[in-house]
Write a protein that binds this DNA or RNA. Structure first.
Ligand SMILES: Nc1ccn([C@H]2C[C@H](O)[C@@H](COP(=O)(O)OP(=O)(O)OP(=O)(O)O)O2)c(=O)n1
Length: 1133
DNA sequence: TTCCGATGAGAG
DNA sequence: CATCGCTCTCATCGGAA
């Protein structure tokens, strides 16, 4: 029994409690021969194990030597008589037997409202999670039970050969033997039984008796096998080659070869709006899971189904399965996933091609005239709309306006056909507004699997052409370099006309083939570069081919700039505004603008690009193999801006964990890890309504983001989730205000490319935890690569959590964050730490944890596993009892000093420091932190745009000089507080701008022309003068900035009053102004203060603060009056 | 100059 | 009921050495 790599990452992904449960379970389990964990690394798998562990706490498995069958399968359970079990269909359209009873019990116990209590969402959420869990759990329990039974029955232990380890098998439809039997066979032989096909295509195999044509398409990406594969494999005691049992034997292998794209989704199509189709399309059930297909629906008498329908409550991000449900139905998610998969696929192809070319030595006879290419831009006409309308006999897309959308109302239109476009309907529009433009607009549902299928045919055809290069732009769109196909063999003899002619013929051929194979029309644009091809494509649409012929200027002249790639609303607006033309600013006009002017307006790159585009120049390269690095994926991110509604931070944390899991899955899929993480949040804009127009939408939002470094490339769920939670706290957005979350991982490293690091090293270290091996530098991650450090770093955050976190929140935090906060809290207390043993003092929580582990049993585990677990425990700072002198301890102490480690507490009286986190900021980072520190302690007069944050109560600033990179928690806290404060300011500023606008309007309404006139006069005057700002206010050079500064200052301190120092600085500034005869300016500042103090009055929670401000303002006013009198000036406000 | 982090635009 | 507003890349900007 041994852990493999993935087990390691599995255990590191567990929460502390889970880990402990895991250990305890393992201890009891060790006699069983079965490895606990199969190697699969995907989410589902993790969940499974995770759940097994979890369930152990409150089930009876603790004592499973005496396992009572009835506890798992109560007397009424059908499993008592497995062979005669009635088939039972659950809501997922999967026939389930095992676990059925639990589900029912659970319903009774937890789901059905009892005593007339309304079912709350929390119950629902629990229920939903529980259901999944129970399904998986039941499999495991069943296995245990069966083993037990056999043991008793045969008085010996017969283990079934675990032939299906690594297999995740889904059974669908009618099979012989039936699903119950198959389920048992699979589970008993080590396989995972997948009750439903999630959106992520986790199943490795699908077993089916026969397939409807529709299912055939749907399962095209899977190994769909006959049930005999299972039964015969079992009777042979080994895994038989699945190829001999394929159900779809005609094209599977081929498809697989050409399109190694992984299954993305098995989302069934909706038929929203008019239910026009009665074919074998499946409708979604509410949960985005597999739906009932016609031949099975007769079995759907399960109360479960009804129950679920009753409980179709709001599905928002609080639901633990929200991500899957959401993604399954999100068109943009599909679009993005398809795109990156295609990019990856073609990237790999290009690499292969490159290798091949290299081994063929001669790479010449290629690339003859790179200057003159022929590029095709090919794209399906209104892709989603066309495909969704296929096989819909009642609809004629050439006459009726159609669109693809989820529902009516404010649902987005993904795509609409050209009939609808005539009425002004556009992609991305909301259905309601479109309906106004086009009253008979017909809504159609999404058919993601169809889009995928058509797309595959499309790309297969393109590949078959053996072009110079194919660059996927989207699921329905690609750029082709067809130069060599159009230039033929003879070099220079060809005229341009001949080339064009060939290109045209080729385009026609492609168009025809694709139409024949898909029933969908493509349009093709042909040009000498990507730009021209794109513009030509636009002209070609719909259902056409257009070739840009050589005097390209005529062609370009009247095209609106908006059509240029990279020119969107903003740039087009800016151009139109600047040059006074009405909205359709053409390329012809763009050409008139000087290069420098464009650069000034849009920056160096955009400016030059616009300039070139106007002249038809574009050097974009579409050949992946010519420079693969350019086409490497550089980031992986998850964005959710729909359904984000949280009540408290715990829910946010849970959600972030789901995201981390998803992130891990995605990274694992492409074998990459990243060393930098960014959390981006959308916060409801100050004046936006709590609930926006679009149901569960994000509405108008303010965005903020913060990034951090792991110090090492990773995809560990634990690290990602911990870091995101940490960042979330830094960004300080109230959970109720949150409307969008995104996590991005960058600085990607290929697993294989960095053999010296991460997993391999990690594994090595597991095996020999006593030796400290010399690590090579990790190129990407700032020289941190020691496995010990990597492990510790789960507790790392670039920033620590501020210590004003409410204590009720604390206990909800993951242990490692909690630990940090606790530590910091301790630290702010008077020194008591020095003579304490960490076991008693430092790790209160963890000490409790460690008692939960049965150390006696732990000791009986195989040594290597013990070691592994010890490392993990150590990483989490859970003390290892019963064996105090653990070797892992030494590892910390002997860590090379070049690593920057955080000293928090002495581990034992004699020892020096305890390493809590590792962070290796780049030199810049270091500077930045230090700089931020000084900024935070500075005040308004410093040469910085920062305003001093409200007084923070960090009395002690014990800077530990020994660790340059790491500032003590208290200082870090200040930095974080400062950052949060800045965020708050930013947000308030925005809020203020709106308030200010309102204020101005009110002023106008009240007919106070005089005040306005004076104000604006003063403003113009001030803005017009270019006096150097006085020294003390050097940080701003323009009056608007000063104004803004003062406004934010007031706004942020209206509850506490101005800080003495700041106010003094201001007074100095005024004195300076007056002495330099800047009278107007001083009056103006006074005005701003007076006005804004009053404005803020209504936002003020603490009247005292306002009074403080008001009195200061009066003081200033008097001061100015007196000063002015000295100069014989009388002013008027 | 160069690098970095935050932010935004644009694409399908 | 509604509704499923993703995700990647490049550019810009301001701040820091
Ligand atoms: N805001 C958008 C834009 C596009 N899409 C989807 C639906 C489209 O069918 C597909 C392809 O986008 P295109 O921009 O190519 O638009 P169409 O194919 O619909 O129309 P056409 O290409 O004919 O202009 O992407 C979407 O869901 N939402």
């Amino acid at each position: 029994m041994n852990f493999d790599n993935n087990s390691s990452s599995f255990i590191t992904s567990l929460g502390d409690d889970e880990l402990i449960e895991f250990i305890n379970k393992l201890s009891q389990e060790k006699k069983s021969k079965r490895g606990f964990k199969s190697q699969d690394d995907n989410l589902q798998e993790r969940d499974h194990d995770h759940l097994e562990v979890e369930t152990d706490v409150d089930t009876e498995l603790d004592d499973h030597e005496e396992l009572d069958v009835n506890k798992i399968f109560p007397p009424s359970s059908p499993l008592k008589a497995p062979s005669s079990v009635p088939i039972h269909q659950d809501k997922n359209n999967n026939i389930s037997v095992v676990g059925e009873k639990e589900e029912e019990e659970e319903e009774e116990a937890g789901l059905k409202p009892q005593d007339g209590i309304e079912l709350e969402f929390g119950d629902y959420a629990t229920y939903f999670k529980e259901k999944q869990k129970k399904q998986q759990e039941a499999d495991y329990n069943y296995k245990e039970w069966d083993a037990n039974r056999r043991r008793k029955q045969y008085k010996e232990q017969i283990d079934y050969p675990q032939i299906f380890v690594n297999c995740i098998i889904h059974v669908t439809g009618r099979t012989e033997p039936d699903i119950t039997q198959l389920h048992k066979l699979i589970v008993l032989h080590g396989g995972k039984f997948l009750h439903y096909l999630g959106a992520k295509g986790n199943a490795t195999h699908i077993i089916a008796g026969k397939l409807t044509p529709r299912k055939k398409l749907e399962f095209a990406k899977y190994k769909v096998l006959k049930p005999e594969w299972i039964t015969e494999s079992v009777s042979c005691g080994k895994l038989l080659p699945w190829m001999d049992y394929t159900l779809i034997d005609n094209d599977y292998g081929q498809t697989k070869l050409n399109f190694n794209r992984k299954a993305q989704t098995l989302e069934k199509s909706d038929n929203a709006g008019e239910k026009t189709s009665n074919d074998d399309d499946d409708d979604d059930d509410e949960f985005g899971l597999a739906a009932a297909s016609p031949e099975e629906t007769d079995l759907t008498q399960d109360p479960m189904v009804i129950e679920n329908n009753d409980n179709q409550q709001q599905i928002d991000a609080k639901n633990p399965d929200f991500l899957q449900i959401f993604f399954a139905k999100s068109r943009l998610h599909h679009l993005s996933t398809w795109k990156s998969d295609l990019r990856e696929e073609f990237f790999q192809k290009a690499l292969a091609k490159l290798r091949e070319r290299k081994s063929n030595i001669v790479s010449s006879a290629f690339k003859k005239s790179s200057s003159s290419k022929i590029i095709f831009h090919i794209d399906f006409d209104c892709f989603f709309a066309t495909v969704s309308a296929l096989n819909q006999p009642n609809i004629d897309p050439s006459k009726q306006p159609i669109c693809v959308t989820h529902g009516g109302g404010n649902a987005d239109i993904a795509s609409c056909n050209y009939v609808a476009r005539k009425s002004g309907v556009k992609n991305g529009m909301w259905f309601n507004s479109a309906k106004k433009l086009c009253p008979n607009l017909i809504p159609l549902g999404y058919k993601f699997d169809e889009y995928d299928r058509i797309s595959k045919i499309f790309y297969k055809n393109l590949l078959d052409l053996e072009l110079d290069s194919v660059l996927p732009v989207s699921v329905d769109e690609a750029l082709l370099d067809v130069t060599s196909l159009c230039t033929g063999g003879d070099d220079d003899d060809e005229t341009i006309i001949e080339q064009s002619e060939r290109a045209m013929q080729l385009a026609k051929k492609i168009k025809k083939t694709i139409f024949e194979e898909t029933d969908c029309s493509v349009s093709i644009g042909i040009g000498r570069n990507v730009l021209l091809a794109k513009l030509a494509l636009r002209r070609a649409k719909p259902d056409g081919i257009f070739q840009v012929s050589d005097p390209i200027h005529d062609f370009l002249e009247n095209i609106p700039v908006k059509d240029l790639p990279g020119v969107g609303y903003n740039i087009a607006q800016k151009l139109a505004k600047e040059f006074g033309e009405n909205s359709d600013f053409s390329i012809g006009s763009l050409k008139q603008i000087e290069k420098q002017k464009l650069i000034n307006m849009f920056g160096i790159k955009t400016g030059t690009r616009l300039y070139d585009y106007a002249r038809g120049i574009d050097k974009t390269n579409i050949d992946i193999s010519s420079n693969p690095q350019d086409f490497q994926r550089k980031s992986v991110s998850i964005d959710i801006n729909w359904g984000i509604r949280f009540d408290n931070i715990q829910q946010v944390d849970m959600f972030l964990v789901s995201c981390a899991k998803e992130m891990n899955t995605r990274l694992a899929k492409i074998n990459k890890s990243g060393s930098q993480i960014m959390l981006k949040l959308a916060r409801r804009a100050p004046n936006a309504p709590i609930e926006p127009t679009k149901y569960l939408g994000m509405g108008d939002c303010v965005f903020c983001s913060k990034s951090a470094r792991f110090g090492i490339a990773t995809r560990e769920i634990g690290l990602i989730s911990t870091e995101s939670k940490s960042l979330f706290r830094i960004l300080n957005v109230p959970p109720t205000e949150l409307r969008g979350v995104s996590i991005q991982i960058t600085n990607l490293v290929d697993d294989s490319a960095t053999s010296s690091q991460m997993k391999l090293q990690f594994k090595k270290a597991e095996k020999t935890p006593f030796t400290t091996t010399r690590k090579e530098k990790d190129q990407v991650t700032d020289n941190v690569s020691s496995p010990e450090i990597q492990k510790i770093s789960s507790t790392s955050s670039q920033y620590d959590v501020p210590n004003d976190v409410h204590s009720s929140l604390l206990k909800e935090l993951p242990a490692d964050i909690r630990q940090k906060v606790e530590n910091q809290r301790q630290k702010t207390k008077p020194k008591i730490s020095n003579n304490n043993s960490s076991l008693n003092f430092n790790n209160n929580n963890n000490h409790i944890n460690s008692h939960e582990i049965d150390w006696e049993v732990f000791k009986e585990l195989p040594l290597d596993i013990q070691n592994e677990l010890k490392i993990e425990l150590k990483r989490r700072e859970i003390p290892i009892l019963g064996k105090p002198d653990t070797p892992t301890k030494r590892d910390y102490r002997t860590s090379p000093s070049k690593f920057h480690l955080q000293q928090i507490f002495p581990e034992s009286p004699g020892e020096k420091a305890k390493v809590v986190r590792v962070l290796s900021p780049s030199p810049r980072k270091k500077r930045k932190i230090i700089a931020a520190d000084s900024a935070a302690s500075g005040s308004i007069g410093n040469n910085t745009t920062k305003i001093k944050p409200p007084p923070l109560n960090f009395e002690e600033l014990n800077v530990d000089k020994g660790f340059l990179d790491e500032l003590p928690a208290s200082v870090r806290n200040e930095i974080i507080a400062d950052f949060q404060y800045q965020q708050e300011l930013k947000f308030k500023r925005q809020k203020f701008q709106e308030t200010e606008e309102e204020f101005r309007k009110i002023q106008k309404k009240l007919q106070q022309p005089r005040s306005i006139r004076i104000t604006s006069e003063l403003y113009t005057q001030l803005l017009g003068t270019r006096t150097k700002p006085p020294p003390r206010f050097q940080f701003t050079s323009s009056f608007t900035k000063i104004k803004e500064l003062i406004i934010t200052w007031i706004r942020s301190t209206i509850n506490v009053g101005p800080h003495e120092d700041d106010f003094n600085k201001l007074m100095e500034f005024i004195v300076e102004l007056i002495s330099t005869k800047n009278f107007t300016k001083s009056i103006n500042i006074l005005k701003i203060i007076l006005v804004n103090v009053q404005i803020e009055k209504k936002n003020c929670d603490n009247y005292k603060g306002f009074q403080e401000w008001e009195s200061r303002a009066q003081m200033l006013k008097e001061f100015i009056t007196t000063e002015f009198e000295k100069h014989n000036i009388i002013y008027e406000l």
